[in-house]
Computed example of a mutant assay.
Amino acid sequence: MKKEIQGRKIVTDTAVAYGQSKNTGLYALAAAVNTLWAEGVTDISVKASVCVPPYVYKSRRNGMMKLLQETCQEYGICLEEEEGITAAVVTVPEVIVTGTGITDEGSRPEILPGWGIVQTGWLGMSGMLQAAEERKRELSGWFSPSFMKQILSYQKELFAKSVLEAAGLLKTKEGEKVSFVRQIGSGGILAALWNLSKETKLGLDMNMKAFSILQETVEVCEYFRLNPYQLSSVGSFLIVSEDAEGLAEQILAAGGKANVIGSLTDSHDKLIHNGEEIRYLDRPAPDELWKIYQTDLV
């Protein structure tokens, strides 16, 4: 949500995450603050609520809250308000984070057909991490300890501040920003592309082979029979730019991950090329992460 006040705007975003892992709150926190950073907000305040069912020990709830506190301190985020609740109304722990900040109200150039679309980060990564944490014991019986360690090492990439700085989305010395940026949230990259087309009122011409995905995500998704293209991707963004190649190179030079994955068109078609195969983008589907809570999954 955005609200303009005398040439500046207040930006807020609320994110929710569910799960048994002590890291559950990090997914909600990262989703909210990444969205604000992408709007150019540098001073962020957050409110966090951790609600757990009665069967969860208070120590686990407190551990989740402590991790939120430590992470906010690490990234210079003001944890303005926090609360821990035990309630029978939830069946798994629920973390709600609302972030707020103020940024300058600047004009961005009109987006035109032919402009490129850059994907930063790794699609499906956050969903893969959550699935791995929620079913860690099960996966540990299938994958090697070194592979499990590698999976969990990607936690640090949930927070995309450095990548957004490299893309010029946070204030630079010249105050420049790119034209359009959206985090790949619930429903994965396919939902994000659909929403991008809807918001810009332009068509899409995408190259699926250019999508960036970790081998670890492929392996975990194959095990749980999940579609990684419909999996939450906190920390990964779609950025539209007139100079998409230059933007991707700029992010890569700063140590981030970025690929040009397609472009906008002047038609209403939403096309995805996968080699010689061409498909039309479907309407967004529910996030695949919910499937890991089904007892008959495997």
Score class of each variant (00 low, 15 high):
227 N>F: 09
225 R>P: 04
195 N>M: 13
10 I>L: 15
87 A>C: 09
161 K>R: 15
291 K>L: 10
57 Y>L: 10
24 T>P: 01
241 S>M: 00
71 T>A: 00
227 N>K: 11
127 G>Y: 08
115 W>L: 00
195 N>P: 01
120 T>V: 03
4 E>C: 02
63 G>W: 05
182 R>A: 06
9 K>H: 06
48 A>K: 00
134 E>Y: 09
116 G>V: 03
138 E>D: 05
136 K>Q: 13
182 R>N: 09
84 G>I: 01
53 P>D: 04
37 W>L: 06
13 D>C: 12
8 R>N: 12
163 V>K: 00
213 I>K: 13
244 A>E: 02
146 S>D: 15
274 N>R: 05
298 V>M: 10
137 R>I: 09
247 L>M: 00
132 A>F: 08
101 G>I: 08
249 E>M: 06
189 I>K: 03
138 E>H: 04
115 W>M: 14
275 G>C: 04
221 C>D: 06
127 G>F: 04
1 M>V: 12
206 M>E: 12
103 T>D: 12
150 Q>C: 06
88 A>W: 10
237 F>M: 04
257 K>H: 07
295 T>R: 15
18 Y>R: 07
50 V>N: 02
113 P>N: 03
173 K>P: 03
293 Y>F: 14
245 E>K: 13
170 L>D: 05
222 E>R: 15
30 A>P: 07
1 M>K: 13
243 D>I: 01
239 I>M: 07
92 V>H: 13
17 A>I: 00
92 V>W: 11
36 L>T: 00
246 G>L: 03
286 P>L: 06
107 S>Y: 13
31 A>C: 07
88 A>D: 11
162 S>K: 14
297 L>E: 13
103 T>V: 15
169 L>N: 02
114 G>Q: 02
113 P>W: 05
232 S>N: 12
124 G>L: 03
71 T>S: 01
232 S>T: 15
196 L>E: 06
293 Y>T: 07
176 E>N: 10
267 S>R: 13
262 G>M: 00
188 G>D: 12
96 I>V: 15
132 A>W: 07
232 S>E: 15
72 C>K: 08
100 T>K: 08
84 G>A: 07
240 V>I: 11
186 S>T: 12
13 D>H: 14
20 Q>S: 09
131 A>L: 04
148 M>Q: 06
122 W>N: 10
67 L>F: 11
184 I>C: 04
210 A>Y: 09
86 T>Y: 05
236 S>M: 00
290 W>S: 10
294 Q>N: 11
113 P>I: 02
135 R>L: 13
28 A>P: 04
263 S>G: 14
216 E>Y: 08
224 F>W: 11
280 Y>W: 12
168 G>Q: 09
155 Q>T: 03
43 D>A: 11
296 D>F: 14
73 Q>F: 12
178 V>S: 12
116 G>W: 05
179 S>F: 08
239 I>Q: 08
141 G>T: 02
280 Y>F: 13
68 L>S: 02
142 W>S: 07
224 F>T: 01
176 E>Q: 08
46 V>A: 07
96 I>W: 03
9 K>S: 13
216 E>T: 10
146 S>W: 11
247 L>E: 10
234 V>R: 03
51 C>L: 11
75 Y>H: 14
221 C>E: 08
155 Q>E: 15
50 V>L: 00
217 T>M: 05
108 R>K: 14
92 V>N: 09
32 A>Q: 01
221 C>K: 02
88 A>I: 11
193 L>R: 01
192 A>Y: 03
254 A>T: 00
178 V>K: 12
231 L>V: 01
206 M>G: 06
22 K>W: 03
